[in-house]
Design a protein around this nucleic acid. Sequence first.
DNA 1: GTGCAATGGTCAATTTTGTAGTCCTTTGAC
DNA 2: GTCAAAGGACTACAAAATTGACCATTGCAC
Lengths: 258, 258
Amino acid sequence: MDTSTVGERTAEQPSPIDRIEHAQAHELVVDQIRRAIQLGRFLPGDRLPAERDLAGLLGVSRATVREAIRVLEADGVVSVRRGAHGGLVVNRLHAMDTRTLRARLKKQARELNDIFDYRLVVECMAARLAAERRTDEDLVYLGEVLERMAELAADPGGEHGAHITAQFNAADTEFHLGIASAAANPYLIEGAEKMRRAMFLPVGAVFSQLRTDANDIHAAIFDAIKDSDADAAEHHMRQHVEATRKAMADLLKPAGDA
Amino acid sequence: MDTSTVGERTAEQPSPIDRIEHAQAHELVVDQIRRAIQLGRFLPGDRLPAERDLAGLLGVSRATVREAIRVLEADGVVSVRRGAHGGLVVNRLHAMDTRTLRARLKKQARELNDIFDYRLVVECMAARLAAERRTDEDLVYLGEVLERMAELAADPGGEHGAHITAQFNAADTEFHLGIASAAANPYLIEGAEKMRRAMFLPVGAVFSQLRTDANDIHAAIFDAIKDSDADAAEHHMRQHVEATRKAMADLLKPAGDA
DNA sequence: GTGCAATGGTCAATTTTGTAGTCCTTTGAC
DNA sequence: GTCAAAGGACTACAAAATTGACCATTGCAC
């Protein structure tokens, strides 16, 4: 055997150095736009800024933005309309019937579980710290979001029920991220945002049912933060997260329903 | 006033879309090499793989690797030696005397606090889940690391005390990341690694003192994980992290010493 | 209806970044 | 002293992004 090969034998040397993943500019743009949509900053039906504006906001050329748009379009996330009041329109989530959804969640059960394990610790700590550190501004902001959610929960919805749900969801995201912001720990903020994005699909599908339930416990969390009661804030947040986890697990288990 | 400008007035529209940060290839390489060093995969005095090998491992061209090396060199992280058994050598951390260190830590006090808040929740949950999920392989691995740390703690060190400390630190990192691995939750693994990297500087400077203390509690954590006692695992981990936080805080406060 | 302005669609020229391959230089071990 | 294993330097090429201009479509105001 000659000795010219680099590694001893062909055995894999477990190197502590990983390959570089050099994303292209348009991939980063895709991710950034997806992120905004997943965090509910743009709702289905909303128009994104025009290509030229996006290029400016993102700090890349228009050509790059257009590459990204092609990807998002192919993925069904946005639609492109030409002409004067055209532009980029966020699509509705492809509606999944209960069966499809359940199959999908089941396949991702393990992943969902990981997400919730992580979410639990991150959001509980965020709630605790928020109770200790929140400013008056934080309270005003959270209060407004809560108010908005209450109105949305009261709205019967009717025809545009899906849109109400989307709005509610966006507000819910703002509430949870707002708590992380009040906790003023960048690691927690980042973690909370990551959770939200990871739950985008599953939650979007499930949450239409538990709107009103959520409101009460949100209020409890808010009050605890307002009263600077860290233990209570953590407690309620734990209940809330576990309730959400359970709601999703329930959707998975029972063979009943349509 | 003409209406040609895009935004109404010059007021900043708080857009939900951030600028893209398009890192160049060599920056990613710098980060990857830094990561390996900060996680203790390469200790001071160790040689990194040769440029050509690094290029292969990282999946980039040699020119790109060389750009990265120039950055790391300028930053004092590695030294370059030409000739036959030359190559890239990891430098010792610039030794900081207690005064300098304290000044530095003080300036980063807030940041350190954030790190520890986050570390606490991530590592406690990791310990808990590790107790529930660890495989026999995990136990063997953690046991080996623990063993190694015990030997290093026993070693008087003498002249090469700094090197012993570096080795101990690397083993400590392996222990904590090993627990996160045993918890088998990718979010926790990522979080734990991020913590480690963030603590690279401060810990490296402080830890020479509390080697032996750490060993006992590490053993306690290990036993709890072995016994699948989640509560105990979390409890000991909490104690451990808090002790470390305290050690660092102590270094900050007292005017004595030096 | 007409025209305008806003928007996406297309293209070409240029610059920047990264790769591939070659050869040179230094240096330690045998 | 020789040689092999490094880093150093250079050239030619390929790929990715930017820039800027111009075209095509469409809805709204008049």
